[in-house]
Amino acid sequence: MSAVVDLSSAEREVRDKAAMASPVSDRFVTDAALKPAFFDWLCRMGDNALVLGHRTSEWCGHGPVLEEDIALANTALDLIGHTQLWLGLAGEVEGRGRDADQLAYLRDAAQFRNLLLVELPNGDMGVTLMREFLFDAWHHACLSWLIAHSQSPRVAEIAAKAIKEVTYHLERASDLVVRLGDGSGESHARMQAAVDLLWPYTGEMFKSDAIEAELVKAGIVPASETLRETWERTVSEIFEEATLDMPEDGYSHLGGKQGRHTEHLGFILAEMQFLQRAYPGASW
């Protein structure tokens, strides 16, 4: 646990400057033509991490065993760390003086760009772990692409930082999907039910749109559909080990990336944003 410290305003200023200052130059950050699309895409990355991080943190103090509780809280912490990096860069690109905290706490649901998958309620441990796994497998593939191919050095450096932690998440989630899928009759049934529940929300990860196309053209981001092959390979390999059935692709719920959310996001924001809404600008 970090010590509780009283930051003087001068100290806070130094800390905040340190959080902002990056020595890496990147022409895309100030590219006026790309700005709306780039900002939007950075919010997609940041909001996925933020909303899943918040959902995962809901387990803190409620995990079935202490180790799982700690693991989930640490995973949530990593995701909130990624949020600060992605939304921090989003704020810089936007150039209106909004920082990561303002973007996280002061936007309403329609401005959020996360996948519907990450805002669904946690359900039981099976749903929580399966969602983590399905998302991690996509997240890992996406970050790998960004590190290898993105023409934006700032995007690539965030991806290179995040993937170390995401690799850990994917490894842990894979282990548990195998252990529970290929476990008792009860655990197997719950894991298969989780797959069946979540599967219609996975298609959105591979759905492109005009905003993404602009950035694909600039060489900054991958076209979503190109990540499907890697994702399917990871998922089918783990499912085989876990004795779980991969459903046929059918209907996909879409809209999260464009700001059309399920009813669940509003409840998350009501809790997450309460303090900043009730006491604007509060800091400690």
Binding site: E11, V14, A18, D78, I80, L85, A162, E165
Partner: peptide, 22 residues
Amino acid sequence: VAVTPTYSGCPATSVIDMMIEA
């Protein structure tokens, strides 16, 4: 002084910056 975080979400990061400053 250039400082790199250990983990992206490590809560010690801002405390470390402050201690370096102090």
